[in-house]
């Protein structure tokens, strides 16, 4: 060490605190750190999977709604000559039935997702709880209407959209819970 370095060290650390050296931790602790990181990665992956699944579901609903609207427009704008109307109805009935099946499947999947999220979430703030209650009321209303018109593609589309909204609220709450847990 040069005289200048010596002088510099003396002025910056005149009491020699730097000579106290390091302290032996006496524990390893890596397992806890690894476990916390693993939980974090798992949570992120779950979040990404759920998010992408919901994005796919939302896109499907959009595509189905557009298809439905186009089909309805085609039916309503065509002249009502018997031969032509019949052929259009035959053409439209196949995709409409498929779409209903797809929407019912999506609705069932969403039910399961919401059930899982509901189990994971802790108590939620009043504001969230009000939204949840409102959405559940709306879903009940749609279910009532579906009992009268079980093949209504419009109603099934509404039900899936409402379920998506509901899942989003639970997902947000779950994310808040997870963030809280991770910060502990």
């Amino acid at each position: 060490m040069t005289a200048h370095e010596q002088w510099k060290q003396n002025t910056s650390d005149p009491l020699g605190l730097g000579d106290l050296g390091t302290i032996e931790p006496g524990y390893d602790g890596w397992d806890q750190v690894e476990s916390a990181l693993q939980n974090h990665h798992d949570g992120q992956q779950r979040w990404r999977r759920l998010g992408s699944w919901m994005a796919v579901a939302a896109s499907l609903v959009l595509v189905i709604s557009i298809t439905l609207r186009n089909t309805e427009n085609q039916i309503s704008t065509k002249p009502s000559t018997p031969e032509f109307a019949t052929s259009v109805t035959k053409f439209a009935s196949v995709p409409v039935q498929d779409n209903i099946k797809a929407l019912i499947g999506m609705s069932q999947n969403m039910e399961q997702q919401v059930k899982k999220l509901r189990q994971k979430s802790s108590s939620m703030p009043a504001e969230f709880a009000i939204y949840v209650a409102e959405l559940e009321d709306l879903i009940a209303q749609v279910d009532n209407e579906l009992s009268l018109a079980p093949d209504s593609i419009d109603l099934w589309g509404q039900r899936v959209n409402l379920m998506l909204d509901l899942a989003q609220i639970y997902q947000q709450q779950w994310q808040i819970d997870y963030g809280r847990m991770a910060s502990l």
């Binding site: 910056s12 650390d13 005149p14 009491l15 605190l17 730097g18 106290l20």
Partner: peptide, 8 residues
């Protein structure tokens, strides 16, 4: 004192 004198 620690941050200044030891950690720089």
């Amino acid at each position: 004192v620690w941050l200044h004198d030891v950690e720089g």
